[in-house]
């Protein structure tokens, strides 16, 4: 069992995500980007290469300068999202990344660089990112 949020938690999700071929078909698949996760004050950077999420590391605010985009929510909202996924097996309509991006005043996906080309990777890979977080339903989590 891993605590959310932590590198161990992301590594467990990565293991499930990387091992499941079903995440690669039907519009999922190749995904090349670095995505920051700003969970309250905690920051993590995930690296997606080809069909895998190859790395998850703890990072600091400066690291967000280099990621293609990052997902930014208060810790409580992140907890609500991952708990919803755990309860339903995948995000319900109110907790998908797309919904959260639309419903939140400041959106969900953003960047420091403002490079539209890189920010739009969030839309190109949205399904893969959703698959990644949906994979968290298949691990045992505890919540900080």
């Amino acid at each position: 069992m891993s605590r959310f949020p932590s590198v161990d938690w992301f590594d467990e999700v990565r293991a499930v995500f990387n091992a499941d071929d079903s995440y690669r078909g039907a519009g999922g698949g190749t995904c090349n980007c670095t995505a920051g996760m700003k969970i309250g004050d905690d920051i993590f950077v995930l690296t997606f290469e080809g069909i895998e999420c190859s790395r998850a590391v703890v990072a600091d605010e400066a690291a967000l300068d280099d990621v293609d985009f990052y997902l930014d929510m208060p810790r409580g909202d992140w907890l609500e999202m991952v708990k919803n996924i755990a309860a339903n097996g995948s995000a319900d309509l109110h907790h998908t990344l797309n919904t959260l991006d639309l419903d939140r005043e400041d959106g969900l996906a953003t960047s420091h660089h403002g490079d539209q080309y890189r920010e739009d990777l969030f839309f190109r890979y949205n399904q893969t990112l959703q698959f990644f977080f949906n994979a968290s339903a298949r691990i045992k989590s505890e919540y900080a």
Partner: peptide, 8 residues
């Protein structure tokens, strides 16, 4: 969701 990725 998938049409969005294509359009992006």
């Amino acid at each position: 969701g998938h049409a969005l990725a294509d359009k992006a």
